[in-house]
Every structure is written in structure tokens, then in C-alpha cells.
């Protein structure tokens, strides 16, 4: 799932560098509630507020919703992980 986040801008050194390097890439965002959001990361800010495109919402691994654009409030974010493809589970 992760581990490929260092290819775009050379070596990723700090969390901030990582966050800068993953814009425009497919990501999984996991919230504290356990819900996953898969989509293209459009941008993020210092609060870890996130804007995503082509977002899919997975609850207990099951696709529950799709959003064209989605804003996620940063306080809910547990982690952001890069992925190779958005549609790992088909759909």
C-alpha cells in the first residue's frame, strides 16, 4: 500500500516533505472512526484538512459512497497513505 511515496521528489525526509510530495497522487485517508477514503489527493493544509477528488468511502472494507470532490476536516484524520491504484477492490 505505502512505501512508494518517495519517488516524485527524491528522498522524503520529514512528514511535511511527504505531505508536499503526495499532492495529485492516489491516497487512502483513514479517519479515527476507522472509515477509509480512497481518492486523488488534490491538496491539504497545516491542519491536515484534505481536499480529494474521485473519492470513495469504505466502511468495514465495503464501498459505501462516492464523492466527486470531498473536503475532510483535519481533526478526523488518523493517517494518509499513498497507493498505486484507487480501485484496489474493483467497483
Amino acid at each position: 500500500m505505502s512505501g512508494s511515496g518517495e519517488k516524485i521528489s527524491g528522498t522524503t525526509k520529514t512528514p511535511a516533505d511527504f505531505l508536499k510530495s503526495i499532492r495529485g497522487r492516489p491516497v487512502v485517508v483513514k479517519l479515527n472512526s476507522g472509515v477509509d477514503y480512497r481518492g486523488i489527493l488534490a491538496c491539504l493544509d497545516g491542519y491536515m484538512n484534505i481536499a480529494m477528488e474521485q473519492t470513495e468511502e469504505y466502511v468495514n472494507g465495503q464501498l459505501k459512497n462516492k464523492y466527486g470532490d470531498a473536503f475532510i476536516r483535519g481533526n478526523n484524520v488518523l493517517y494518509i497513505s499513498t497507493v498505486k491504484r484507487t480501485l484496489a477492490d474493483g467497483a
Partner: peptide, 13 residues
């Protein structure tokens, strides 16, 4: 109140 917000999705542009 904003602290209860998890996600906001605008209409498809």
C-alpha cells in the same frame, strides 16, 4: 458548529 464536521462534498461541478 464546525467541530462536528467530518466531510463536506460540494455538488459535481
Amino acid at each position: 458548529r464546525g467541530d462536528g464536521v467530518i466531510l463536506v462534498s460540494p455538488p459535481l461541478r
